[in-house]
């Protein structure tokens, strides 16, 4: 295993507790929605996007039809398009045959951790780093789903609370170290301030809309 994959695994291990906690939630939600255990594990393997999985289970509980379940999941996952678009800049020489497989594992964490690593201008192979993050976070997601299905709602609340804090704290630390210049700071402030109200107005879309809006406004101002 290359050293850069190991670096990615180390970076991913900081996000792993949050992944376990979130996917425990997926496992519990699947049980509540009456989703068969194997189908819940399959959803993590195949979709690997907790918000979309929650949305799918929610539509199913409301007796939505198959097409509704698929549509809501795909719409909730639109953000992956922007994330992959950004990642294309970091993997310019990686053969498409390899990207065909690894594209499946683009998530907010694998994308953002690779993005922040790219800014350090180190000699790290970013594709290997990305794969390391994926290995760690994907395993954490699978473990979380299986644990969630097994224990149901019996997880101690204090444990769940602590685990969910790892990802926001980790991203705060990265932002503290990596934000440079007034335009990047402005993007951070817009993201911080606009995401919660927009999420309340348009659940599942607020984060995406605030980020696209921030990028568009600052790109225009910068010109």
């Amino acid at each position: 295993m290359s050293g850069d994959i190991t670096k990615g695994i180390k970076a991913g291990s900081s996000a792993a507790p949050t992944f376990v906690a979130i996917f425990i939630g997926v496992g519990i939600a699947a049980g509540v929605a009456g989703v068969p255990a194997l189908a819940a594990v399959y959803s993590t393997l195949a979709v690997f996007a907790a918000p979309a999985q929650f949305a799918m289970f929610d539509v199913a509980v409301q007796e939505g039809v198959l097409l509704q379940v698929v549509s809501v999941a795909v719409l909730v996952n639109l953000r992956f398009f922007v994330m992959s678009l950004t990642l294309t800049n970091f993997f310019p020489h990686v053969p498409r045959s390899r990207l065909v497989f690894w594209a499946q594992f683009v998530s907010a964490s694998s994308y953002l951790l690779t993005f922040f690593e790219s800014r350090r201008q180190s000699s790290v192979d970013l594709f290997d780093f990305f794969r390391g993050v994926v290995i760690m976070t994907f395993l954490a997601a699978l473990v979380g789903t299986v644990v969630g299905i097994s224990i149901g709602a019996g997880l101690p609340a204090l444990f769940a609370f602590g685990a969910t804090l790892f990802l926001p704290i980790y991203f705060s630390l990265l932002l503290l170290g990596e934000t440079k210049g007034r335009f990047e700071l402005l993007a951070v402030l817009i993201g911080l301030l606009l995401t919660p109200p927009l999420e309340l107005l348009l659940p599942g879309w607020g984060l995406f809309i605030a980020a696209i809006g921030a990028g568009a406004v600052i790109a225009v101002v910068e010109r």
Partner: peptide, 13 residues
């Protein structure tokens, strides 16, 4: 900029 805003949004959310 979108990437920075997404990271910040995850925190505030």
């Amino acid at each position: 900029y979108v990437s920075f805003a997404i990271a910040a949004g995850i925190v505030s959310k």
